[in-house]
Nucleic acid binder design. Structure first.
Length: 503
RNA sequence: GGUCCGUUCGUCUAGGGGUUAGGACGCCAGAAUUUCAUUCUGGUAACAGGGGUUCGAUUCCCUUACGGACUACCA
């Protein structure tokens, strides 16, 4: 059991990758890195009807954005290629045939309509239709007709599928890294289709064949696959292959209400469920990246949905995660997705970012506004340093700092009540004090203004509140003298004059 | 309906036969502040129910309830 660790993320390109898929990919990545193994991406596009253009590119781009790109995939280190199942199509038939020859599978000619009818009839009788030993002898399969007849029908281009012949009486004791032993009675399972009438394998066959051929050591996937674990294990056995170890991850659930987090929940509830924005004819689904989340946030938050390192530590870099991650510490119950806490993580990472880096991001937003007031990168960095600890996203910056760029156009009504009869005169005096200041830096301005107030025995509130109102338009924002320094003497005076004239 | 999985504060979780059941988010309250926010301090709040086993169970077993996944020629 000491084969090299090779794990895969194997999505279907049926649309954008959603956050549950991202977490599956992340856990695979972490497990690989932790164990010095390889993480690869395989595209499972055996269902041609559900193929969505762009989905494959989206998946790769998302993983790259998050910093968990696969080491092998389509067009990259194709040691075991192709990595797209549609391109491996010629491979699968021989394995299906092998199963037929060994008696582990059989041909079935039932039409979809016939099967539907069986199911409906059983339902009407209050019974459950299971396609297995209960009735496979009564159905249209190669088990009840001769070899020659079967060959003839296939030669006649009759549609057929290949089904797995599930053993009738066996208890399977399967091991799951997360769940421990899981038991299944094979007699209750149905004979799954392995090979479809369109010449493509189903997920089950393709998955097992490829995991084997690509030397997959561990299968880490969502809990929705737990019910197919017995089939998969039996397939490995039927082929005589060593099965990988399995780990079934708990599901990510809706924030409120019940059920699995779905693609629809996100925009309904005002948070993204996709890493990247996804546009279709029906509309746009928002993405974490476009909403201003950092990849670090998404990785960190997702890693803690169903896993923790046993300490109180919550902030993990990707690097730290690869050190700390342990599949055995993943737990079994599903986890509700909490958008609030997710935001808090982004706030933490925003705090960690360099002011100058954030200033560059913010500058991009500012440029789009085509304002008259321009600041250098240094000045932008200063502004960012004054406001960033109150923000969750770079996109929050504007409403927290618009007054650095434009004079107030309105004054908060409540705050205007502090604008007393003597205020205009006081502000006029303040203007003359300010105009005298030559070293126009925050601390110096503060000292001089405060000196003036003490000398003339003017209360703090009498000056500071109207002063702030004049500059900001409301009683909010960072340290007032920092604002004064950034906007400059001329602008300060002009805003005071405007306030005197309008309030 | 059948099969399987699960159940500790509202949420994410730690813990595990004897604990004041710990942390984080949120919420509330104080502190600080010329303001708002941040920050800091404190507080609120949980072992689903019932049976066992045991000197003792939230922890082990059974069971009920509830929740979830699967039940396609989809993955």
């Amino acid at each position: 059991m000491s084969r090299p660790v090779r794990v895969r993320f194997a999505p279907s390109p049926t649309g954008p990758l959603h956050i549950g898929g991202v977490r599956t990919a992340l856990f695979n990545y972490l497990f690989a890195k932790k164990n010095g193994g390889t993480f690869y991406l395989r595209i499972e596009d055996t269902d041609q009807n559900r193929f969505v253009p762009g989905a494959e590119e989206y998946i790769l781009e998302a993983l790259e954005w998050l910093g968990i790109a696969p080491e092998e995939t389509v067009g990259k280190n194709e040691k075991f290629g192709p990595y797209r199942q549609s391109e491996r199509k010629p491979l699968y038939k021989q394995y299906a045939d092998q199963l037929i020859e060994s008696g582990n599978a059989y041909y079935a000619f039932d039409t979809a309509e016939a099967l539907d009818a069986h199911r409906k009839q059983h339902e009407a009788e209050g019974k459950t239709f299971i396609y297995n030993h209960h009735n496979r002898e009564k159905l249209d399969t190669s088990l009840v007709i001769s070899k020659e007849e079967t060959a003839k029908r296939i030669a006649n281009n009759e549609d057929y599928v290949i089904r797995f012949k599930t053993p009738q009486n066996e208890t399977l004791h399967l091991q799951d890294i997360i769940r421990g032993e899981v038991k299944f009675e094979t007699g209750l399972l149905d004979d799954k289709v392995l090979f479809k009438s369109d010449g493509m394998p189903t997920y089950h066959l393709a998955n097992i064949v490829d995991d084997h051929l690509m030397e997959t050591s561990h299968v880490i996937r969502g809990e929705e696959w737990l019910p197919s674990m017995p089939l998969h294990v039996m397939l490995y056995r039927a082929f005589g292959w060593e099965a990988p170890e399995f780990a079934h991850l708990p599901l990510i659930l809706k924030p409120i209400g019940n059920g699995k987090l779905s693609k629809r929940d996100g925009d309904k509830m005002g948070f993204p469920v996709f890493p990247l924005e996804w546009k279709t004819a029906e509309g746009v689904s928002s993405g974490y990246r476009e909403k201003g989340f950092f990849p670090e946030t998404v990785v960190n938050f997702l890693s803690l949905l169903g896993w923790n390192d046993g300490t109180d530590k919550e902030l993990f870099s990707l690097e730290e995660l690869t050190q700390a991650f342990d599949l055995k510490r993943v737990h079994k119950a599903g986890a509700k997705f909490d958008p609030e806490k997710n935001k808090w993580f982004n706030h933490q990472y925003l705090m960690q970012k360099e002011d100058s880096v954030l200033a560059e991001e913010y500058s991009k937003i500012i440029e789009l506004k085509h304002l008259n007031r321009h600041y250098s990168l240094n000045e932008m960095t200063k502004i960012v340093s004054l406001i960033k600890d109150r923000a969750d996203f770079v996109s929050d910056f504007w409403e927290m700092s618009d007054f650095f760029f434009i004079a107030p156009t309105a004054y908060d009504e409540k705050a205007s009540k502090n604008w007393k009869a003597e205020t205009p005169a006081l502000m006029q005096e303040l203007i003359s004090v300010i105009e005298e200041i030559s070293d126009f830096t925050s601390l110096n301005i503060e000292t001089i203004v405060k000196d003036w107030m003490t000398k003339n025995e003017i209360g703090m509130g009498k000056v500071m509140q109207p002063f702030r109102l004049s500059l900001v338009g409301a009683l909010k924002g960072p340290h007032l003298f920092d604002i004064v320094e950034v906007i400059g003497k001329q602008e300060t005076v002009s805003r005071l004059q405007k306030a005197i004239a309008t309030i």
